[in-house]
Simulated scan of single mutants.
Amino acid sequence: MGQGCGATGVGSGLRADAERNRLRIVEAAREVFAEEGIDAPLNEVARRAEVGIATLFRRFPTRDDLVTAVFADRMSAYAAAVDRAHAEPDPWLGFCRYLEQVCAMQVGDRGFTDVMTQSFPRFRSFEAERRRSLDRFGDLVTRAQQAGRLRADFVVEDLPLLLMANAGVVSGMGDAAPDAWRRLVTYLVQAFAAETAEGPVATAQPLPEAPTPRQVARALARVQARAARGPGRAQ
């Protein structure tokens, strides 16, 4: 019996080590994907997790395995944002707040935009939640249009356009003007408002302040420096 217990102990130790490695890889990937997007080099993920690349691939055989593990909680938060917006009695207010919340989720996380504008058909539960959230957003769009608040030609496919535009501002402005995205989103929400006899429907909030000339200059210098460094590292 002593030998059996010893074997179980070794197995438990190996499983514990494997789980620790898995958690370290997920946390490292969360950081790297947030900084560089989900196409970031996996070698960098392994380096930060302090594991070999072979260990990373044993735990996560494909990039999508790792991506869906990292963003499972973000997808749940995204779904919750849709549900909160859907529960808002005023569908236009729910629409406005939802767009602001989702765009806020992009700040500091380049990977989120990648995940929201791609599909992961092999991962059924992950993809099902993403699709359910988009369907719920579609329902919200319909309700806001039926209320006469959202322009009739807005479609669900406009959401990825908004996210990609916002991602560009978030990335380009960086810490030079970290709140500049709010002005962009408010501008776009105003553009989405339905026209009435009195003019466009009022938006949920006034237009935030524009970045200062100094902030814009810093952001442009940052973009130029990034372009001078050339494309990202190979995987």
Results as ranks from 00 to 15, higher is better:
residue 16 A to I: 07
residue 64 D to M: 09
residue 216 V to N: 05
residue 88 E to K: 03
residue 10 V to Y: 13
residue 170 V to Q: 00
residue 217 A to W: 05
residue 104 A to H: 08
residue 158 D to F: 07
residue 80 A to K: 14
residue 23 L to Y: 03
residue 20 R to Q: 13
residue 10 V to R: 15
residue 137 F to M: 12
residue 165 A to Q: 14
residue 116 M to H: 12
residue 152 A to V: 04
residue 143 R to L: 13
residue 156 V to E: 04
residue 200 P to M: 07
residue 120 F to S: 06
residue 49 A to G: 04
residue 175 D to E: 14
residue 68 T to I: 14
residue 92 W to K: 01
residue 41 P to R: 01
residue 88 E to V: 03
residue 184 L to C: 05
residue 213 P to G: 08
residue 207 L to A: 09
residue 12 S to N: 15
residue 196 T to R: 15
residue 170 V to S: 01
residue 100 E to P: 02
residue 60 F to G: 02
residue 199 G to N: 09
residue 107 V to F: 07
residue 197 A to L: 09
residue 168 G to F: 01
residue 144 A to C: 08
residue 171 S to I: 00
residue 99 L to S: 04
residue 140 L to E: 05
residue 176 A to V: 08
residue 54 A to M: 09
residue 31 E to A: 14
residue 174 G to E: 07
residue 108 G to D: 10
residue 101 Q to W: 00
residue 20 R to V: 10
residue 8 T to P: 01
residue 153 D to M: 04
residue 34 A to Q: 06
residue 15 R to Q: 13
residue 133 S to R: 01
residue 114 D to L: 06
residue 156 V to F: 01
residue 117 T to F: 03
residue 194 A to R: 00
residue 1 M to G: 14
residue 26 V to A: 08
residue 27 E to S: 15
residue 2 G to H: 10
residue 81 A to P: 01
residue 187 Y to C: 10
residue 88 E to C: 12
residue 233 R to V: 08
residue 80 A to I: 01
residue 157 E to H: 05
residue 16 A to G: 05
residue 168 G to M: 10
residue 16 A to F: 08
residue 143 R to V: 04
residue 43 N to S: 11
residue 106 Q to I: 06
residue 195 E to P: 01
residue 101 Q to K: 03
residue 171 S to T: 13
residue 146 Q to D: 14
residue 76 S to W: 04
residue 105 M to T: 00
residue 216 V to S: 07
residue 229 R to G: 11
residue 225 A to Y: 04
residue 156 V to R: 05
residue 222 R to K: 12
residue 231 P to R: 14
residue 115 V to G: 03
residue 167 A to G: 13
residue 1 M to Y: 12
residue 22 R to E: 15
residue 83 D to I: 06
residue 56 L to H: 05
residue 73 D to T: 15
residue 224 Q to A: 15
residue 141 V to D: 01
residue 101 Q to G: 00
residue 183 R to T: 10
residue 153 D to F: 03
residue 45 V to P: 02
residue 159 L to P: 00
residue 147 A to L: 07
residue 102 V to R: 03
residue 26 V to H: 03
residue 187 Y to V: 13
residue 31 E to G: 05
residue 202 A to I: 08
residue 105 M to N: 05
residue 39 D to V: 00
residue 173 M to D: 02
residue 48 R to A: 01
residue 174 G to R: 04
residue 146 Q to H: 11
residue 165 A to I: 01
residue 5 C to N: 11
residue 198 E to I: 00
residue 235 Q to S: 07
residue 120 F to Y: 15
residue 85 A to I: 04
residue 231 P to M: 11
residue 56 L to E: 03
residue 17 D to M: 12
residue 177 A to E: 04
residue 7 A to V: 11
residue 25 I to Y: 06
residue 75 M to T: 15
residue 126 F to H: 09
residue 83 D to K: 07
residue 131 R to K: 11
residue 14 L to K: 12
residue 20 R to S: 11
residue 51 V to Y: 07
residue 97 R to G: 15
residue 185 V to C: 02
residue 119 S to P: 00
residue 137 F to R: 00
residue 229 R to I: 09
residue 15 R to N: 10
residue 5 C to L: 13
residue 17 D to G: 08
residue 55 T to N: 04
residue 85 A to V: 03
residue 60 F to I: 07
residue 83 D to C: 01
residue 190 Q to N: 12
residue 204 A to S: 14
residue 234 A to L: 14
residue 22 R to P: 12
residue 192 F to R: 02
residue 141 V to P: 00
residue 203 T to N: 09
residue 126 F to Q: 05
residue 76 S to T: 14
